[in-house]
């Protein structure tokens, strides 16, 4: 195992298509719910403790070797918005392609064959971490960071927000990222004995509704 593999996987330039997605920030900006750095921070905090926690727990469980098909069903149940399910599977497929090229692995191949339209992104993220020789904690960190990093980058573009301010938001959230990653790993560890129902299911009503609204727009800057 190499720690540098974590940097490769977590890098925003890793070619998995994430840069085209705002994590719901575009819809929130349009609705006037994000107008500056303070709103961005509150948005990211809410996303971190809901979608971020769920994604991190799924990723950690996949990295720990839980059955990917069972995790994929759990991800479906935790994603009522069909627009978000489609996005998650599309991102899962793109990440799968990049991960298989980067860290060739039989498990990745098997899941790619089983889910030709893509498994949910956090599940693939966990498997990619596993293929890279990383562990559940690394996978959880990738997921929690992604859950706030995506919206922060997107809001810089959407509002012409000062990139220093956006990065300061991420830095202020760092202790909470630690706590959420920790919680995610704890519940992922319990999957082996208690099954996937033990995974957190924290939801964010406005992320779900916003995703449906956003998917209906004829023109948008980000894919989600």
């Amino acid at each position: 195992m190499t720690r540098a593999a974590l940097l490769v996987l977590a890098d925003g330039r890793f070619p998995a298509g994430g840069h085209a997605h705002s994590g719901g920030a575009e819809a929130a900006v349009k609705a006037g719910r994000i107008t500056g750095a303070a709103d961005l921070e509150a948005f990211c905090r809410g996303r971190l403790h809901t979608a971020g926690l769920v994604a991190a727990a799924l990723a950690a469980a996949a990295a720990a070797g839980a059955d990917p098909a069972g995790l994929d069903v759990a991800a479906d149940a935790r994603t009522p918005s069909p627009a978000l399910r489609t996005t998650s599977r599309r991102l899962g497929r793109q990440l799968m392609r990049a991960a298989r090229a980067t860290w060739p692995d039989g498990e990745l191949d098997a899941v790619a064959r089983r889910f030709p339209k893509g498994a949910h992104q956090p599940v693939v993220l966990g498997l990619a971490a596993r293929a890279a020789g990383l562990g559940p904690t690394d996978a959880a960190y990738c997921a929690v960071y992604e859950s706030v990093g995506g919206p922060a980058t997107a809001v810089v573009r959407l509002l012409s927000l000062d990139p220093f301010e956006a990065t300061a938001v991420l830095a202020r959230l760092a202790p909470e990222l630690d706590r959420v990653a920790d919680r995610a790993v704890t519940s992922a560890t319990a999957v082996r004995t208690e099954g996937v129902d033990v995974l957190p299911a924290a939801s964010a009503p406005l992320l779900e509704i916003g995703a449906e609204v956003h998917a209906a727009w004829p023109v948008r800057l980000f894919a989600s």
Partner: peptide
Amino acid sequence: GRVVLDQELTCGPGAPGGWDGPAVLA
């Protein structure tokens, strides 16, 4: 036998941060 929906929401004092913010209830 298959879980089709699993959702939780926690609000108010002591809830995880951001529950009243732009991503959750605004």
